[in-house]
């Protein structure tokens, strides 16, 4: 989206209230979505719930290709389409819904920095594990990613995606890392988050922010997703305060809403043995 258009959009966005029929699009939940997309999608859903903005979740096999930036999830609000958490936060802010207004300048800088930490380490590690670890690719990623397509498109698209991710890993210097090093990085990231959280209920004390939504999205998804082994989730389980943080957000933003949020989230959250 060009900047002029963006400025224009944010202006009209401010004028219109949040519509009832806002929708969030993501890949099929049961047999297509991958760890990283699931985490990003959960982060956005959590953020919108924290803002108390209603959203209907739609599952589409071609969500990735519907998104304006090629990344899922994206939301369709009124006649605008916005993808990824960062722009969505901007968008809701233009509509007058913001979680970070109470923070001072330094806190806001720290919040942004920690959000980049999650993107830079957790998200990249998820991508690495799901596209660069041969076991995971063969057993989970490729079958799931290509499930909506028939032969030969399923192979072509999966290889294309894998090739793209691997080149990205090369460019950012992750290609030389082994799996052990990646787990080590995840652990380091979790330690940093755990230190920052301390004994507070949320990262910036009483009030949840978009950082809490992002962290919850990633940690909860990692904890509740079955991979080829559970080393990744074990890394998080070393940090008790992160676990109780996930449980707290789950309870206060998902369980009470279960009645009206449809079946989507309740079935997912019911099979979360790792948290209870």
């Amino acid at each position: 989206m060009s900047l002029a258009a963006e400025a224009f959009v944010s202006q009209i966005a401010a004028a219109e209230p949040w519509p009832e029929n806002a929708a969030l699009y993501q890949p099929l939940k049961d047999d297509q979505i991958l760890l990283s997309d699931c985490a990003s999608s959960l982060a956005v859903q959590t953020y919108l719930r924290m803002c108390r903005l209603p959203i209907r979740v739609s599952y589409r096999a071609n969500a990735e290709y519907m998104s304006p930036s090629g990344k899922v999830p994206f939301i369709h609000v009124g006649n605008q389409v916005v993808s990824e958490l960062g722009p969505i936060v901007q968008f809701t802010k233009a509509k007058g819904h913001s979680l970070s207004d109470g923070l001072d300048e330094v806190q806001r800088a720290e919040m942004k920095a920690y959000m980049e930490l999650v993107n830079n380490m957790l998200l990249t590690a998820e991508l690495y594990i799901q596209w660069c670890d041969e076991n995971t690719v063969a057993e989970i990623t490729r079958p799931r990613y290509s499930s909506p397509y028939s032969w030969p498109l399923n192979h072509i698209l999966a290889y294309q995606k894998q090739w793209e991710v691997r080149r990205k890993m090369n460019a950012i210097g992750w290609a030389g890392k082994g799996l052990a090093q990646v787990y080590e990085d995840v652990s380091q990231c979790c330690q940093a988050l755990s230190q920052r959280l301390g004994i507070q209920p949320y990262f910036f004390n009483k009030q949840p922010t978009e950082l809490d939504a992002l962290v919850f999205g990633h940690l909860f998804t990692i904890l509740t997703t079955q991979l080829t082994n559970n080393e990744l989730s074990e890394k998080i389980k070393n940090y008790g305060n992160l676990l109780s943080f996930c449980r707290r957000i789950e309870q206060s933003f998902f369980e009470e809403h279960d009645g009206d949020s449809g079946t989507g989230s309740s079935s997912r959250f019911s099979k979360s043995p790792s948290l209870i």
């Binding site: 720290e110 942004k112 920095a113 980049e116 930490l117 993107n119 830079n120 990231c189 940093a192 230190q195």
Partner: peptide
């Protein structure tokens, strides 16, 4: 402190990403 170490990591990520 441990928290400052965590901040270091976070701000380095901010630099790399932005």
């Amino acid at each position: 402190s441990a928290k400052e170490g965590a901040d270091t990591l976070a701000f380095i990520s901010l630099l790399e990403e932005k």
